[in-house]
Design a protein around this nucleic acid. Structure first.
Length: 265
DNA sequence: CCGGATGTTCACCT
DNA sequence: GAGGTGAACATCCG
């Protein structure tokens, strides 16, 4: 899925194109996609109101709603799983998504609203791993990776014996870092994904912090989570772009992990 | 045909 | 309690 870089693109799309348009109908053809006990009936409360702002925390997109008189309504929370896309008036938030069909198939539209002007906002998700919630609790999410401070990152890693990569991807600690971004950032920071998170020295955490922010900015500018320098070598026979060492493939935190055993320590 | 793929959650172990 | 593993979700791709 989209990692936080793609979700940020979805947020920007929603902010640019979906605000202040009265909601005429809510389309929830897939009950499975409604999370937290949400029902199509409860969603009808959105009819007549409009989206007033769009925010993102980690990989969670939240759309605030407001009634015609301006009073605040419920918050619509959207998660995109690994293959979910946001479309407004048929325009996707990102052009390409890997590991998902890029065919414009309406049959994969799991949720949407139509606006009174005839347009619509939809979540298209072939694999159906995303979901919709009303008033999602953000309490379970850690600091957003894009704005995390050195002190916050230090706190997120301190005292943990879990592998560094697993901790980085723990959304309750650092929100927004997924599998590809984690591998890219650790490769740039020359840190092994298998190191116990709490074993990093202050110098190493500083290095990680600097590379996390730089990698996010750079990959955002390039157009997505799949644009990292390590990406094309994440395959059998891949070698480290920095020193030519064959990359090692392991599983960390339940996810396929590629790293350079030579310079990532 | 089989195995994996930008994710999350849950049951079940150690 | 902290972590790890495997399964589940559904589809596409090599």
């Amino acid at each position: 899925m989209p990692e936080m870089i793609e979700v940020e693109a979805y947020r920007a799309l929603a902010e640019r194109a979906a605000l202040d348009r009265p909601i005429a109908t809510v389309e929830a053809p897939d009950a499975w996609y409604l999370k937290g006990g949400l029902t199509a009936e409860a969603l009808s409360a959105l009819i007549g109101s409009h989206f007033s702002s769009a925010h993102r925390r980690g990989k969670l997109l939240t759309l605030e709603t407001a009634a015609p008189d301006g009073s605040a309504g419920p918050v619509l929370g959207l998660r995109f799983g690994m293959s979910g896309r946001l479309l407004v008036d048929g325009t996707p938030g990102v052009a390409e998504l890997r590991y998902a069909s890029n065919e414009p198939l309406e049959r994969y539209d799991r949720f949407g609203v139509t606006f009174s002007d005839g347009g619509h906002l939809r979540v298209r998700d072939p694999r159906r791993l995303g979901g919709v919630q009303l008033d999602p609790s953000e309490g379970a999410l850690g600091h957003d990776a894009a704005g995390i401070t050195l002190g916050q990152l230090t706190g997120a890693l301190a005292g943990s014996r879990a592998p560094l990569k697993a901790r980085l991807m723990d959304q309750a600690r650092v929100a927004g870092v997924g599998n590809l971004i984690a591998d890219e950032v650790l490769w740039r920071a020359s840190l092994s994904p298998e190191r116990p998170a709490g074993s990093l020295t202050p110098t190493e955490v500083r290095r990680l912090h600097r590379h996390l922010r730089a990698a996010l900015l750079e990959m955002t500018a390039r157009g997505g989570s799949h644009t990292g320098d390590l990406m094309e070598q994440r395959r059998a026979g891949g070698v480290c772009p920095r020193d030519g060492e064959p990359l090692r493939r392991t599983t960390v935190g339940g996810r396929t992990t590629w790293f350079c055993p030579r310079h990532q320590r």
